[in-house]
Write a protein that binds this DNA or RNA. Structure first.
Length: 817
RNA sequence: GCCGGGAUGGCGGAACUGGCAGACGCGCGGGACUCAAAAUCCCGUGAGCUUCGGCUCGUGCGGGUUCGACCCCCGCUCCCGGCACCA
């Protein structure tokens, strides 16, 4: 009687057993001699139940954790929830549910689903970022940045929805409109808290070089986001007032080609200069429009509009006076907010010059060509020979850039400079459901840190969520009124909360010291477990979360709290689960949920479906890989065959196995091990399927397969943990879990084939295949090839002019025709 | 526009370092079992031609290097992702 596979009976039973045994607890005893492995999955946001993306990501992450445990590691595989954030507040506004209630209900549902899936989490380390025990330390982290001058307040433009009367995050502005009410977003200047991540720009860039195990695209995105540019700062003088204005340029070699000068519309000097020159009437509308245009619209605009200010700038390299304009195409947030414009060699400046009738002066020409500024149709940004540039005439560029910078420094007209596109991290949110910023504003003392021993600053639970323009905390009748920790006078709390990316920038440290009450974590715990052995999650966090986490790690390193500067040396991004080429969405009505699949066919089938569909980092199109919901998935049928084959093998007992099966088993162990090390779950599963098929072939002839069965079950464990455990403990009779068994090993001698297929080619075309001994000599292999029927037929009696022999795999006869 | 990644049967995908293209699975066709169906098992399955021995073509397109190219080089096309006035 063949062993039957019944997931619905097996899975809940082992799920309970694992929990009762505490099987997945990480061992914190320093005396434990096993090497440690921190398997980290990006923690979920609790909006509803788990979705397909979670199912895919955690299937991979859990396979890694289980595999590493079987490889002899003491594995830390924690879970938690990124539980602060706007959706909870929106649920409160829309449906009248308390954010806290909504959040915790979703967390419980997701936790139950994870359990049902059999995720090997160490539940004892579970955390939620919205728990006061957690956000106490988020606030503590803020204060350490505040102490170091890395957290500061300044006025900054933000997205403002006039209907909801509230500030929106960039992600909440959809094509210039509020995502909730559709009103066009405006721009407002508000005083906001920032983290000074720009101080770490160079280190974030330099250390990225060490992240060789990150996906290339993620590293590229980070580098582009940081955006380092080398160039020079050059100081121009306003002819009419004598005031000095510095610009940044990456092309100091084109300084002699500057024919006008442009200020960002918001530049503080614009109004003063325009009023002085009597042009404010004409300039003012432009400035006002720029100030009101949302940041999103502003970046999407591509006009070359601008207004002459009526003043002139003196070019320090040649004393020339050039007209000054204000134009929105120059950004206040980058460089100095003012530029020298070189229309001949910058396309944007060129378009502006043509539209406003400004001269175009060529100072760089391609070798052997002459460009004419009056007739050229686009800027020339290439290499070439320098002309009309005083001491640099006749030199070539870009080689001369460094010499121009040296000359500027010697002449005291400018200096070499580096600029980054990276901006400081705006962390203020005028929102309720976040960690309150632990600052008290005192009329006498200014910004005062809440003392560490008064943390956490707890969120009140009786607030009005109706959008009102600033944080709901500001409207609470009593919460914000406190005494100043410094002078004892009357003061008010800061009523903003922190960006949820602050919460998620340090959660992986907290997992190392769960429940620790004297700090966010114990350094010795963190330094034992970290850096993370493998970080798994979605590519949507390629920039923000990963950049912020790297930044916070470097700050903690500088504080002497951790001994490393990069938290995640190995990163893997799973692909998205899509449907019919598009993201699953409610409006499309094409959402497929993982839990019904788990209930119908079992968690193991859900995992195998995800992992077998293709490379882990590729997208999965559910429409293409899944049949009808009630149609039995192929991987489920395979598990059925595994049960039957293992059952039969056990019934026959540990008797002699065909040598071919023994060799295949060893080759399979080698191959699957390599695949697991490289996240190649799809090919690992395929190799296990081949082994299953071969076992069944042997069993048909009455031979044994016990060793193959044991290896198969062990290798199945990270991929289909319930089925493997059932076979291991119930059928094979092992007392201890397969998930704490040793990963099978192979004998290299047995992975080598005894006989191999020799490919016989004539002129590179396959003409025959012959079985030969693996250690065949060159002469013998050529003789065997030549004797083959296919070679005889194709050679037609001709003598090869050349014979290429690669024993034992290939012989190629080259003949002339 | 710039940057990154792709394109292989009807479908998802394999192919180590340049050496059997299409592993494994889905789907489909045929068969066994069955009163029947489901389940299960077996056989076949890139295209065309075939005297059934084989032959020709075939990894987005066009060239090249090589005894030999899905793989390397040059030139394109299309698709996906990211950034997008960053001076």
């Amino acid at each position: 009687m063949a062993r039957r596979y019944d997931a619905s009976e097996i899975e809940p039973r082992w799920q309970r057993a694992w929990a009762a045994e505490g099987l997945f607890r990480a061992v914190d005893d320093p005396a434990d001699a096993r090497p440690r492995f921190y398997a980290l999955d990006m923690f979920p946001y609790p909006s509803g139940d788990l979705h397909m993306g979670h199912a895919e990501a955690f299937s991979g992450g859990d396979a890694v954790a289980r595999y590493q445990a079987m490889r002899g590691h003491n594995v830390l595989h924690p879970i938690g929830w990124d539980a602060f954030g706007l959706p909870a507040e929106n649920a409160a506004i829309k449906r009248g549910v308390e954010p806290e209630e909504w959040t915790y209900a979703n967390i419980e549902q997701q936790a139950a689903s994870f359990d049902r899936m059999g995720m090997s989490f160490d539940w004892s380390r579970r955390l939620n970022t919205c728990d006061p025990d957690y956000y106490r330390w988020t606030q503590w982290l803020f204060l350490r940045l505040f102490d170091k001058g890395l957290a500061y307040r300044k006025e900054s433009p933000v997205n403002w929805c006039p209907t909801d009367a509230t500030v929106l995050a960039n992600e909440q502005v959809i094509q210039g409109a509020c995502e909730r009410c559709g009103t066009m977003v405006e721009r407002r200047e508000l005083t906001q808290w920032f983290f000074k991540i720009t101080d770490y720009a160079q280190r974030l860039l330099d250390d990225a070089e060490s992240l060789v195990d990150w996906p290339e695209r993620v590293l590229t995105m980070q580098r582009n986001w940081i955006g380092r540019s080398e160039g020079a700062e050059v100081t121009f003088t306003i002819a009419e007032t004598g005031e000095e204005i510095t610009v940044f340029t990456t092309r100091p070699d084109t300084l002699w080609g500057a024919t006008f000068f442009v200020f960002a519309a918001e530049h503080p000097a614009v109004r003063r200069l325009a009023e002085l020159a009597g042009t404010w009437d004409r300039v003012e509308p432009l400035v006002r429009t720029a100030a009101q245009t949302s940041l999103v619209d502003r970046e999407a605009a591509d006009t070359r509009e601008g207004v002459f200010l009526g003043v002139h700038a003196v070019n320090p390299v040649n004393g020339e006076q050039i007209p000054c304009y204000a134009a929105p195409y120059v950004l206040m947030g980058y460089g100095t907010g003012a530029i020298m414009a070189v229309p001949a060699h910058d396309q944007r400046d060129f378009e502006f010059a043509r539209q406003h009738g400004v001269a175009v002066r060529v100072v760089i020409q391609p070798e052997g060509e002459t460009l004419d500024g009056d007739t050229m149709t686009e800027a020339y940004a290439g290499e070439g020979v320098i002309v009309h540039s005083g001491p640099f005439d006749g030199r070539s560029t870009p080689d001369s850039i460094d010499e121009v910078i040296a000359w500027l420094e010697a002449e005291k007209r400018g200096r070499g400079a580096i600029n980054f596109r990276l901006r400081d991290w705006l962390i203020s949110r005028q929102r309720y459901w976040g960690a309150p910023i632990p600052i008290v504003h005192c009329p006498a003392c200014g910004e005062v840190a809440v003392p560490d021993d008064q943390l956490p600053v707890v969120l009140p639970d009786d607030v009005d969520f109706t959008p009102g323009g600033d944080s709901p905390l500001a409207h609470h009748p009593s919460w914000k009124h406190v005494t100043c920790p410094s002078c004892g006078g009357e003061a008010v709390r800061d009523t903003d909360t922190m960006d949820t990316f602050v919460d998620s920038s340090w959660y992986f440290f907290r997992y190392c010291s769960p429940g620790y009450e004297d700090g966010p974590f114990r350094s010795e715990d963190v330094n034992r477990w970290m850096p993370v052995g493998q970080y798994t999650g979605g590519v949507e966090h390629a920039i923000l979360h990963l950049l912020y986490s790297r930044f916070v790690t470097k700050v903690l390193f500088d504080l002497g709290m951790v001994s490393f500067t990069e938290p995640f040396p190995r990163l893997m991004n799973q692909g998205q689960v899509i449907f019919d080429g598009a993201a699953m969405s409610k409006s499309k009505g094409n959402i497929v949920e993982p839990m019904p699949l788990v209930e119908r066919w079992g968690a193991d089938t859900m995992r195998l479906t995800m992992l077998f569909a293709g490379p882990f980092e590729d997208d999965i199109d559910w429409k293409l890989i899944a049949g009808a919901p009630d149609k039995r998935p192929g991987v489920h049928a395979w598990l059925g065959r595994v049960f039957a084959a293992v059952g039969d093998a056990i019934a026959r007992g540990d008797v002699a196995e065909p040598e071919a099966l023994v060799r295949l088993t060893h080759r399979t162990i080698r191959g699957v091990t390599e695949d697991m090390d490289r996240f190649r779950f799809n090919t690992a599963i395929s190799k296990l399927m081949v082994l299953t098929n071969e076992m069944r072939g042997g069993l048909d002839t009455g031979a044994g397969a016990f060793g193959a069965a044991r290896a198969l079950v062990a290798m199945l464990a990270p991929l289909a943990p319930f089925a493997a455990e059932e076979l291991w403990r119930t059928d094979l009779g092992e007392a201890a879990s397969v998930h704490r068994a040793s990963w099978p090993t192979f004998d290299p001698a047995l992975t080598v084939e005894e006989r191999v297929t020799l490919v016989v080619q004539v002129n590179g075309k396959v003409r025959d295949k012959v079985s030969v001994a693996a250690d065949v000599s060159e002469e013998d292999v050529i003789a065997a090839a030549r004797a083959s029927a296919g070679a005889q037929r194709a050679l037609e009696g001709r003598e090869p002019v050349k014979v290429i022999a690669r024993p034992p795999k290939l012989v190629n006869f080259v003949v002339e025709d």
